[in-house]
Simulated assay, not measured.
Amino acid sequence: MSSTEPSANAQQQASQLGIPGEHGRLLARLARQAIAHRLETGEAPPVPRNLPEPLQQTRAAFASLHHGEQLRGCMGTLIGRKPLIEQAQESAVEAALADPRFEPVSRAELDRLTLSASVLTDPEQLWVDSEAELLERLRPGEDGLILKDGHRQATFLPAVWAHLPEPQAFIAHLKAKAGLRPDHWSPDMQVARYTSVTFTAEPPLQGAD
């Protein structure tokens, strides 16, 4: 399996999203190239033409950058409003340069970072009256989750389950991300879930310090 090829489970999800593996690997490569273009020229990357149809569909997408296991940037959208290729390119550049949690990525550093492009399904509203009911309906390892209460909102991609496999901890950390107390619940809480498939482009300088 190549470094940009998804796992067997991810391949099944990709099939459900209508994205063949080779198209997903192309998406990840183009997202990485978009960052390099912006860092090298200071200009927005051009949108490639004559791409496979799945990359031209309107889709939501996130892009994340990692140095080993350490997050270096993650940005994206939960609602698809642009062709997937445009959204992936835009999210990748924002993850590198506009994530407020991190300093901008340099061109040299980019060659040491892993890029992951995650394609999302449309969010599904979950009508739940309590955290206990949410825990019953949550699908660990599969669901991305959106919590919103008033002006506070946060999401975790399904990939976060790898670091927070226990459902109560998953929800507690997501609440904290939204600026809510771990035990918080209110009648106004809105919950939605989605699934995603992730394609990864490994850094060309693997093993470099």
Rank of each mutant, 00 (worst) to 15 (best):
V93S: 11
V93M: 11
E94V: 10
A96Y: 07
A96I: 11
L97Y: 08
L97F: 10
A98I: 04
A98R: 11
A98G: 08
A98Q: 12
A98L: 10
D99N: 03
P100R: 01
P100V: 01
R101K: 00
R101L: 01
F102E: 02
F102M: 00
E103C: 07
E103W: 10
V105Y: 04
V105W: 04
S106V: 09
S106R: 06
R107F: 11
A108W: 02
A108N: 03
A108E: 10
E109G: 07
L110G: 00
L110V: 00
L110P: 02
L110T: 03
D111S: 06
R112L: 07
L113F: 07
L113M: 07
L113V: 05
L113P: 02
T114C: 00
L115P: 05
L115G: 01
S116W: 00
S116P: 01
A117K: 01
A117N: 06
A117G: 07
A117S: 13
A117Y: 03
S118M: 09
V119Y: 06
L120A: 11
D122G: 15
P123G: 14
E124V: 15
Q125H: 14
Q125S: 14
L126C: 13
W127D: 15
W127V: 14
W127N: 15
W127T: 14
V128K: 03
V128T: 03
D129I: 07
D129W: 05
D129T: 04
D129P: 04
S130M: 10
S130T: 04
E131N: 08
E131H: 04
E131T: 07
A132V: 08
A132W: 10
A132G: 12
A132R: 13
E133F: 05
E133Q: 10
L134D: 01
L135N: 06
L135P: 04
L135H: 09
E136L: 13
R137T: 12
L138E: 04
L138W: 00
L138G: 01
P140V: 04
